[in-house]
Amino acid sequence: MNPELQNLSDIELLDFLKSEDKSISDAAFREIYNKYASRVHSYCYKILKDRQKAEDIFQETFIKFYNNVQAERLMNGGLIGFIITIARNLCLNEKRNIQDIVSFNSVMYYQKSEIYNNFEDTKKYIQDAINKLEFAYKEPLVLRLYDGMEYSEIAEICGISELNARKRVFRAKQKIKEYLKPIYIELFN
């Protein structure tokens, strides 16, 4: 990361990004990418089940952000909210085009009699359970758990109230517990 740009606010970075001096705007873009790429990637990765599609959408998000940034204004959620919204729209478009397919392996998890003995297994089950959530619950949970967003930011991105966002995240967690219950039962019996 560029130490000179590292401490700048989102608004300042956006100003640099709009600079006519290409070296400055490029440096600002690199800084924004370094700062937010992991969060945007985790969103695409979790929302779309297809790994390759997720990578495509991830790339497209940043390209669209760079190309349209001149005309845009920041939302309350700041730069990350703005970029995630671009990613969200692209993901929704993509989801309309593809059919949700639950992989065979995912289904089989509940029939396996593997011993629930370490964190790697738990992690695998939890991550799979998150993937199984309905979009309306999964998206707020991913934004909360993976992107660390505040409920107000989640509400703005998802177009719901803050209270509703909080409820959805809680419901998502309850659903994950329900998904995992058979495994717990198997473990403790």
Binding site: H41, K46, E55, T122, I126, Q127, L145, Y146
Partner: peptide, 11 residues
């Protein structure tokens, strides 16, 4: 589990 999912966070 969420925080440890490296593949999700590392492009």
């Amino acid at each position: 589990a969420a925080k440890s999912e490296i593949a999700a966070f590392v492009p």
